[in-house]
Amino acid sequence: MALLIEQALNGVQLGFTLFLLAAGLTLIFGIMGVINLAHGSLFMIGAYAAALTAAKTGSFLIAFPVGLVCAAIAGMVIEFLVVRRLYARDHLDQVLATFGLILFFNQMTIILFGRQPLFVEIPSWLEGSIPIVAGVQYPLYRFVIILVGLLTAVGLYFLIARTRIGMLIRAGATNRDMVRALGVDIKLLYTIVFGLGAMLAGLAGIMTGPISAVQVGMGEHVLILTFVVIIIGGVGSIKGAFAGALIVGVVDTMMRAFLPALMRHLMASGSEADALAGGISAMGVYLLMAIVLLIKPKGLLPAHG
């Protein structure tokens, strides 16, 4: 039972990490109509910036804003130099151009920091575990990730539903020509939204750093999971991204945690059961996506209708 709760929380924690990425990606897609593969690179940039700053200064509190700022700046530079020219293009061009960016960022990271993964220590004041319910301890740091994700989700909701910039974002997603016609500097708005999305990706990268290795290519795996989240939730919908991220996070974690034991129970040969369980749990979320797609081709909570 304790294990079940712990794994469920791990799933929620992965879910919130995915939500940070999916929210940025789907926001950018919903408003600018751009599909940005380099979103995973922004995740990596946030993680590297924070990891390197933490190693230099020894302070997570300094590393955290540095990571955010670096990811946001990188995002805005990408928008200004490349993505801005892709708004009017079809998705294929967007995918290919941002694919080229990934090659560049990954190789540049290798040149600058090498192939060796960086390991980031959990700050001392976030170490240890806290009791969740009677008899169940949960690592404090992972709990903080959940809290940060939750706070970001709430903050994002208020930003979009309650502020002027949020109103412009919603208006831009509904009818961008009309917003432009009303005299809003749409270029600036786009750059800000892109920077915001990049910052969310960077935040996910910073928080993930201490619980997994910071290395080249870390962004791509999580990017493809983020795509699954977006397809399940519905493209362009932040609510969908939230639901999809939690579903994917929990399903993925639970399958990895419990499928091997279940398979060993059902099958005679232990090693075969492990191999099969490993395969199925790696494919699990993609199968889930296929099932969702069969029932609701537009995702669970599509943006429009």
């Binding site: 493809i224 795509f227 493209v235 191999a275 790696a282 494919m283 993609y286 199968l287 296929a290």
Partner: peptide
């Protein structure tokens, strides 16, 4: 675009796991 990528990734993981 996303779904074909995701399905291909599924097959990729299948063969990675196929010891």
């Amino acid at each position: 675009i996303m779904i074909t990528l995701a399905f291909a990734q599924m097959i990729f993981f299948f063969f990675v796991a196929l010891k």
